[in-house]
Design a binder for these strands. Structure first.
Lengths: 229, 229
DNA sequence: CGTCGCTTTGATCTAAATCAAGTTGAGTGG
DNA sequence: CCACTCAACTTGATTTAGATCAAAGCGACG
């Protein structure tokens, strides 16, 4: 299995049957049809798939973190989403990936063939409904992000980002950001310097604390909510 | 029928059976199950539905034009999409509308109950597939638009907008824009003045010609493609 | 044919980008 | 274990694209 496609330089690869009564979103899709899922690993900064590449697989982050992005011809980059453990990414209704995906840090994913998911959707209405719901979830995020990119100030964008990451990856009141300032900037439509200045300002206001540049504790979520417009 | 929901101030309302072999996207969904569709009209600037309102209906523009948007608490607005004749809008996988919708000019829509579509999707796999495909199309647009909002210059945004509108509503090489400069600005994440200046510059460069502020002829699509980054 | 909303154009301002050093700290090799 | 290295981050100085403020045009409609 997987003789070539998920790019050459994989480190680990293990085939598994998806457990039937999986509770998470991906399981909700794969569980029903008893689809075959494979694990695969990528090193930091390794490409998972490129923009406009055939969408052969659908992915779920097991551990690590992934960025999905588009590039302009001169290298300007817009990150559309970060994918964290549990998240499904790379799901397409059409035949190709609309954004590229790269591992932000060493990352392990579970993957299933898109064709087998589509087949399952043709048999089981619940699977079809789940595919739709997952795409609708991505759309919802994109709609919120358009508002941020088109109309929020730098400080509002950073506040929104912090609350999003707090919600998605805070453990014991602390977040360990997997991505660098440039990634955050390319997600928020800002430069890395502007992101850094906003974070410094929030620290000086006592809204957050650092222990290392990527370990952040939010000390005043309400203030952040007020800033996020 | 429609005793209250699609907002009170409708002008015309007509019930129709959707023709079976409809060729367009909406027809592809409604045709299969013989769903009941109703026509409804809205006056310029009339609200069709509000953000976070229950998503009771799915709409298709018959004539006119619609803007879908989100607002920040202080009134800043991001238009996520313009809907032109033939376009389906207001389709949600969840229970509420994530964006508000308003008629840009006097507009007639066809609408069907969301619940009946969902029901049809549970019976006919093709309907389910079409719902997914339509949402995926909206997602694709949103992903492209995030790149525009996060990373393109003002001139690149306006060039992209003109090419989009040219593709979607040009008749005999001319486009009649239904929306004002402020709407265009709120779609592109710019002010109306910046949009106006970009259009004037394109005119002075001979890339386009006006006959009235909203009647535009593109004279050099290749130059626009080069500008759109 | 006057009015009012829309658009254009000009002058000025400013938030964020760019340019430019330093600083920090995680990982490496001695 | 320590010192070195280099990428990541912070901070400062300056620039600039686009926003804001301000006035005319213009054109559609009553």
């Amino acid at each position: 299995m997987l003789t070539q496609s998920p790019t050459s330089s994989a480190i680990a690869s293990r085939v598994s049957q998806v457990p039937h009564a999986a509770l998470d979103q991906f399981g909700a899709v794969t569980g029903h049809a008893g689809l075959i899922a494979t694990e695969f690993s990528y090193r930091k900064d390794e490409e998972i798939y490129g923009e406009d590449e055939p969408a052969e697989y659908v992915y779920q982050v097991i551990s690590g973190a992934v960025r999905s992005y588009k590039l302009l011809s001169d290298g300007r980059r817009q990150i559309g989403a970060f994918h964290l453990p549990g998240d499904v990414f790379g799901l397409e209704s059409g035949t190709v990936h609309r954004l590229a995906a790269e591992a932000i840090i060493d990352t392990t994913v579970r993957l299933v063939k898109r064709r087998s998911l589509e087949q399952a959707a043709g048999i089981d209405v619940k699977v079809a409904r789940n595919l739709w719901t997952m795409t609708a979830g991505d759309l919802r995020h994109a709609e919120d992000h358009m508002l941020l990119l088109g109309r929020k100030t730098a400080m509002e964008r950073v506040a929104t980002f912090l609350l999003e990451m707090d919600r998605r990856l805070a453990v014991a009141g602390m977040m360990a950001l997997p991505m660098c300032r440039r990634d955050i900037g390319d997600y928020l439509g800002l430069t890395l310097e502007t992101v850094s200045r906003a974070l410094s300002q929030l620290q000086s206001q006592g809204v957050l604390g650092f222990s290392g540049a990527r370990q952040i504790v939010l000390r005043n979520r309400q203030r952040l909510h007020n800033m996020d417009a």
